[in-house]
Simulated assay, not measured.
Amino acid sequence: MLDAGHGQETAGKRTPDGKMKEFDFNQAVVHFLKKELEQFGVVVLLSNCGTSDLPLRERTSLANKFKVHAFISIHANAFGSTWNEVSGIETFMYTKPSEQSKLLANAIQNSICALLKRKDRGVKQADFAVVRDTKMPAVLVECGFMTNKEEALLLQSEQYRLLCAKAIAVAILCWRNK
């Protein structure tokens, strides 16, 4: 199951200049990623594909109800609400992750950093609902900082969004085939 982060009107989830909403990035990457995975016969479900912000409990309930093999939540990061120099890629898993969540998170982090040549901020643990309340391996991927001018431009480009999707797809396929 792929999760497109936040809803279109989620407050504060945009670049400091307002040119990009995080939802736009998340949604584009999810759709590219879905197409990439389906080429390899992977059945992909979407948790948050509309314009409204589906509550986190509903997202995790859907994943658990359909007993999906993995839950991947796509995001663009931010540090504060003004432009700054913080940059890079990070992937989150729950504070008490399963072994499969660790493997998936590391595969995604390594694949994205290798393909996109961005700063590797590492795999981290957090008590985010989408990684805590799911019963399958689950990760939340932060594909760059909206508050960094260089990364904000990348996050707005279709090429970068496609590369994020390709990198995540490679990681999922490698993880799935182990």
Rank of each mutant, 00 (worst) to 15 (best):
N26E: 09
F25R: 06
V130Y: 04
F71W: 05
K149G: 02
G144T: 13
F92I: 09
S87L: 02
L116W: 11
E99H: 12
E142W: 01
H69P: 01
S47P: 01
E22D: 12
E85S: 14
L116Q: 13
E85W: 04
K135L: 09
V139P: 12
Q39E: 08
G50V: 00
S52I: 11
V130E: 06
S61M: 05
S98I: 04
Y160I: 03
S87M: 00
E58H: 05
H75D: 09
F145G: 14
I74C: 04
F145R: 12
R59S: 09
E38T: 02
S52W: 10
S87G: 02
K21W: 13
D53V: 12
S61G: 13
A126H: 05
K96Y: 08
V42D: 03
K19L: 15
R57C: 10
V30L: 04
Q109Y: 03
E90H: 06
N84D: 13
D24H: 07
H75V: 06
S98V: 07
G80A: 03
P97W: 03
R121H: 01
C49N: 09
V43W: 01
I112W: 02
K19Q: 15
N77Y: 03
F128G: 02
P137W: 11
C49G: 00
A28T: 05
E22S: 14
V131A: 04
G50T: 10
L153H: 11
V29N: 03
A107W: 09
V44C: 02
P137D: 03
